[in-house]
């Protein structure tokens, strides 16, 4: 209610509508341009040569591009899985310890990748791996991405936990459920939308991570964003536009599904 009347007041300022429109144009125009150009039959960005799916065919036929995409998917699925599992346990433990100083500190550490400049993380991870001599190929990237994805997986799960009625686990205990059964039969199903949403966010974050991937990836474990960056050295070709459009569509779909799940009412 308060929110509603609030936004109505802001919306009543003269020029608000136009301003909002300009804002969205500014935000999305470049993306729309990329998407439109990916269907352009002419390789020149300035000439419209008619509608064509040629560049999509070309992008999909590029074996290196396909390998990079497959690498990215493998890494993203693994990192998202790992970070979601870790985040689920972390959120549960920290929720139980709410109010304690060490719990607040631990949560801050989990959130660190959100606030640290990514290049700092990337350099730190690179020197960490090389000083320990860890050279697992994709494994290195999975470890690095798990770390980056952790806060994104953690936040929706934690939010879900905070909205959960504490008396539900008490009711389960009252009905003879031991701690593990309580988690499995009550907490976990209640958290599921948050967990799925956290997993999808983590997946998207891993999929389009560039800075850390660029520094950490080794030959043979190149990810899609890094590969596309490599393609750009020869200039923006329409097949890059096609690949980008596919990524945009996939990411958007995942984020939308994730929000729909997170917003679903538990009751």
């Amino acid at each position: 209610m308060a929110r509603n009347s609030h936004s109505r007041i802001i919306g009543q300022f003269p020029g608000f509508g136009k301003f909002t429109f300009l804002f969205f144009v500014y935000l999305y125009l470049p993306i729309i341009v990329v998407m439109v150009l990916s269907f352009n039959a002419s390789p020149a960005a300035t000439v419209w040569g008619g509608f064509s799916l040629e560049w999509y065919g070309k992008a999909l036929a590029n074996a290196d591009l396909r390998t990079a995409a497959w690498n990215s998917i493998q890494i993203a699925v693994s990192a998202a899985l790992l970070s979601t599992v870790l985040a689920t346990f972390a959120a549960n433990t920290l929720h139980r310890l709410t109010g304690r100083k060490d719990a607040t500190l631990a949560q801050g550490v989990i959130m660190l990748p959100l606030v640290l400049p990514e290049i700092v993380m990337a350099v730190a991870l690179l020197s960490f791996f090389s000083s320990l001599g860890v050279s697992l190929g994709k494994g290195n990237l999975i470890i690095a991405h798990t770390l980056l994805c952790l806060p994104f997986a953690f936040l929706p799960i934690r939010a879900r936990l905070q909205g959960m009625d504490a008396s539900l686990t008490e009711a389960a205990a009252d009905l003879y459920a031991r701690p593990f059964s309580r988690f499995r039969h009550v907490t976990l199903p209640m958290l599921m939308p948050g967990i799925v949403s956290g997993f999808m966010l983590a997946f998207v974050v891993s999929m389009d991570n560039f800075t850390v991937s660029l520094l950490v990836s080794q030959a043979g474990s190149t990810t899609l964003p890094v590969f596309i960056f490599g393609m750009l050295r020869v200039g923006v070709t329409p097949d890059v536009n096609a690949a980008s459009t596919l990524i945009i569509l996939a990411s958007t779909a995942l984020v939308v599904v994730s929000f729909l799940l997170a917003g679903r009412n538990p009751k």
């Binding site: 009625d165 539900l168 389960a172 009550v186």
Partner: peptide, 10 residues
């Protein structure tokens, strides 16, 4: 226990 807000598993 019968809880005040019932606390049924949703």
């Amino acid at each position: 226990t019968v809880f005040q807000q019932y606390s049924l598993f949703p």
